[in-house]
Amino acid sequence: MTAAPSTYSVHGESTSGGSAAVRARGTTIPIDASWGSDEPPHLPGPAELLASAFTACMLKNLERAGALLDFAYESAEVDVVARRQDAPPMFVAISYELRITTSEPQRRVDLVHQNLRKFGTVYNTLAAVCEVDGTVVAVAPEQG
């Protein structure tokens, strides 16, 4: 028997001039919804929020893989670059580098990377519509 799909709800609101926010799970996130301003925005816009969702997916699934595969790590950092084109407007590529501080052997790091690609909901959704490519780098813990 297949489980019912999960549902996620987000509320957004804006005022004329581009001041906007989204609310999810009781947290309000201010966003840039301005258009045509000469000043660079100081808040994340839709593109950065999409890249942020991808980043969150990677980190959450690292924690999931850590628990399921008994993969020990101290910390992780990920850099994501999303590339878009103007005509037609769409994302064409997402690249990432995930750095994991771990003493695990490379074959286990590769296994975690395989799991991140296979089981990430946001990862798979974006990979279905644009190129997604990246690396996972193991960083040895500092000896101290």
Rank of each mutant, 00 (worst) to 15 (best):
V122D: 13
D70L: 07
V81M: 11
G36F: 07
S95Q: 04
T125A: 14
W35Q: 13
D32Q: 03
I29L: 14
I29C: 05
G36R: 09
A82I: 05
V129R: 05
V92A: 10
L49F: 00
G12D: 11
A87Y: 10
D32P: 01
C130K: 03
L59K: 02
T55K: 02
T15P: 08
D32L: 04
A51H: 04
L43A: 08
T2I: 15
S14T: 15
R117K: 14
L69C: 02
A3T: 14
A67E: 13
F71D: 00
D79H: 12
E74R: 12
R117F: 04
F54D: 00
H42M: 00
L59W: 06
T27P: 13
V139M: 07
V137Y: 09
S52M: 08
V137P: 07
A47E: 02
A24M: 07
A53E: 03
E63D: 12
R23Q: 11
A24V: 12
E142S: 14
R99Q: 07
V136P: 06
V78Q: 11
G26C: 07
W35C: 06
R107A: 09
L43K: 11
G18S: 10
Q114K: 04
V78K: 13
A3Y: 15
E97A: 09
L126D: 08
D32H: 04
L49I: 06
Y8E: 15
G134C: 07
A82R: 01
V80T: 11
G12T: 14
Y73V: 01
L59T: 02
L98H: 03
P30Q: 09
R64S: 07
V109Q: 04
A24N: 11
T121R: 12
L43S: 01
T125K: 06
D133E: 11
T125E: 11
P88T: 00
T125D: 05
N115Q: 13
